[in-house]
Design a protein around this nucleic acid. Structure first.
Lengths: 151, 151
DNA sequence: TTGCTTGCAAATGATTTGCACTGCT
DNA sequence: AGCAGTGCAAATCATTTGCAAGCAA
């Protein structure tokens, strides 16, 4: 999720607000974390985050990711891989889905056009209704081989 | 995935064959496991499987699930919940998707009609192509509150 | 027989937590 | 001052693995 300078500021404001609503502070450590997530070009693992910013510490990062997830700033993705992947929440970026490489475990983003999403939304609502299920959001994962592994 | 008697036999034959291809045996322990999975009315966790059949042992069950996943008989689902969920592979049942309760963590199955699936398939293929990704299969998860938790 | 399977106990590894210290507000 | 946040080390807990004994082909 590449964000320009302007968007970056909006992002910080947004995070600030969301954290404040939960009586949480937007500390420098959390800024570093959000910064790393914003710089990543897709969902990243905790080790990847630590590599992007060596000042991050394991336990604090896990704790802060949990706080950010709680605040709706970050989304945690869990697939079969060893580590969970983290990304900025869709509310702060854009609704999208994932391409998951079954070979190397990497995850990247894709978006469908609005028309497709609208159609999907209706279908999902109908199916959920029939099951007495109240849908909140959806996730679509495409499993296969990424460009690198497919080569 | 409720299967009748006839389908149950077909299932066993199929599992037998798939295991044999990998130099594996279809032991009584594995039959019990497949039986429990077939009786479950959706994806189940390991503790749930043990509860369904007390003769199952933790380590062996994990090991057998791994063998069955490898053989394409079982699919392992991982979401945020504490335990992974397991279900019979779609090749043995039917292509479907999941309703995941964000409150209690339960997972249930849903199917879309063929027309919808075909349309989705085309869209997925197109999007993947653009990313140089070779799609293998897809998964759609609807997150929300199940009938019980929504009440 | 041959070596895949199994149960039990011990090990692994991602994630979490206890605690004392730091630094916002 | 008062309490949320942080780093480090220790604890958790789902899942995996070593090993000796059991069982299918």
């Amino acid at each position: 999720m590449d964000l320009g300078v302007r968007a970056r500021r909006d992002l910080d404001d947004d995070v600030q607000t969301r954290l404040a609503e939960g009586e949480h502070r937007y500390t420098s450590g959390r800024r570093s974390l959000v910064d790393a997530l914003a710089r990543a070009d897709g969902p990243v693992t905790l080790p990847a985050l630590l590599a992007m910013d060596p000042t991050l510490v394991v336990s604090s990062t896990y704790r802060n990711l949990a706080v950010l997830v709680e605040a709706g700033v970050v989304r945690r993705l869990v697939h079969g891989a060893d580590h969970a992947h983290y990304e900025l929440a869709e509310e702060l970026t854009r609704h999208h889905h994932h391409l998951i490489c079954e070979s190397c475990g990497s995850v990247s983003d894709v978006t469908f056009d609005d028309r497709v999403e609208r159609t999907l939304g209706k279908t999902f609502q109908r199916v959920a209704d029939e099951a007495g299920f109240v849908p909140h959001h959806h996730a679509i994962d495409l499993f296969g081989r990424c460009r690198v592994c497919a080569a």
